[in-house]
Design a protein around this nucleic acid. Sequence first.
DNA 1: AAACAACACAACCGCACCACA
DNA 2: CTGTGGTGCGGTTGTGTTGTT
Length: 315
Amino acid sequence: MGRSPCCEKVGLKKGPWTPEEDQKLLAYIEEHGHGSWRALPAKAGLQRCGKSCRLRWTNYLRPDIKRGKFSLQEEQTIIQLHALLGNRWSAIATHLPKRTDNEIKNYWNTHLKKRLAKMGIDPVTHKPKNETLGSPQGYSKSTANLSHIAQWESARLEAEARLARESKLRATSLSATLRTTEGSPTSTLSFSENNNMLRAAINGPGSGELVADEEVEWKCLGKRTNTDFLGFQVDTATTLAFGGEVQWIPETSDGEVGAGFTGMLLDNSSDVGGGESNNARGGSSIEEGEESGNYWNSIFNLVISSSPPDSPSVF
DNA sequence: AAACAACACAACCGCACCACA
DNA sequence: CTGTGGTGCGGTTGTGTTGTT
């Protein structure tokens, strides 16, 4: 399309930011907000392009950024979300408060990817690599495992396709509320740990706490007798699959059901167990859910077991 | 102690999307 | 409808740091 570059390339500084530049940028944004990034450098007295300023701010200077080592809980979140979302770092970052997509991306590339590869798990597909490459340490290649690996791969692809279709629904919602549709008063749950939500995802419905990110609203349709599944909307099919009678529907802050991360993953016509794949879906669907959970458990047990000795233990 | 390698992370680049004129 | 500007995103590169020989 021949669009012009974001900034004049001549005479603009590149490379690492100096403390003075940081100070200028901080001071300007604190006083005026960033406004137009393109116009900001001149106004702030910086010899940088607007893009560089934006990156410096969003990835480093922003006051709500948490820096330092990733906790095991954060690692688990990243690995699981990566298995579902792939390299959608910004989407993953929305589930890791105070972490930037860039930081998560770097951490994945420099730590987690290598660790998974070392364990014989393909960091792209999250599947065990070819047997000829050697069985991952401690990973059981049972028929059941392979079965739910296929299911998860299918679910992942389904989610990926839906992401593409429903990118418009991308939204960041705030505050957590839970409601039932049985006339009972809206109940609000306080969700404190992503890890517990993930644990619920790992172990499947009924495995324990229903815990979600504080920043996501959830609407529960039907009896609240079951847990959600990593934010998947549990529809009729999946309710059957999980043996429950509940629908968990993510809700945006303005009350729109179906938006946001979880809404993007599944909709009313989808099925966690494999979408439109030709996976066998007969038999006990609850078992399928458990198998999926076992798959995740096996991944994370491996990750945990291969963590450096100083890594904190969570589970 | 020096040279080199490996690692970690900040920053850049190009593309895509969206809003708007 | 089309072109353009602004911004977000993901891939990649560059550079400083740490570890090893």
